[in-house]
């Protein structure tokens, strides 16, 4: 009985493994690949980024402005910015509320398309919601 089971189990396992490998797709939900240096160099270029002011109280407004350009060498295995893109911002939890977000003066409530090689100007207006950890007491850097 055990020998028979092993005989038919082995090809079944191989088929399952090969099928899983062939069928598996690129993960894109949570920015898993966004942190790889080689990929960051080939996706979005950011410059003239300015954050004002850098120290705020709860309820104060922070304005972030700058420019970006999708790379002409965008990797083929990443979802293209020319299909659907959303102007997001990274904060540690909802410590800030995003009040408004603009690209070239257009509100970015919804997604849009960003074309390769084209320069865009962005502006994000945040409102401070929670007090953060003071820099001196943080051991991260």
């Amino acid at each position: 009985m055990i020998k028979k089971m092993k005989i038919w189990q082995l090809p079944l396992m191989v088929i399952c493994l090969v099928g899983f490998q062939l069928y598996s797709d690129v993960v894109l939900a949570h920015g898993e690949r966004a942190q790889q240096a080689g990929i960051r160099m080939r996706t979005m270029y950011w410059w003239d980024v300015d954050v004002q002011p850098t120290t705020v109280k709860v309820g104060d407004i922070v304005t972030i402005t700058g420019k970006f350009m999708p790379s002409s060498f965008w990797p083929e295995h990443l979802a293209s910015s020319e299909v659907a893109s959303f102007m997001n911002i990274g904060v540690p939890g909802p410590a800030f509320l995003r009040m408004h977000s603009y690209v070239n003066g257009t509100p970015m409530v919804r997604s849009t398309r960003f074309f390769r090689g084209k320069e865009y100007h962005f502006k994000v207006i945040l409102k401070a919601r929670q007090t953060g950890v003071p820099c001196a007491s943080c051991c991260q850097c």
């Binding site: 939900a29 659907a84 997001n88 997604s111």
Partner: peptide, 24 residues
């Protein structure tokens, strides 16, 4: 709900739904 999702920031989200629904 959309507005709450816009204001309470989550890193790299919610892209699935935006891609499926093409912009909104």
């Amino acid at each position: 709900a959309d507005l709450m999702g816009f204001m309470y920031i989550r890193t790299a989200m919610p892209e699935y739904v935006r891609i499926i629904e093409e912009s909104t």
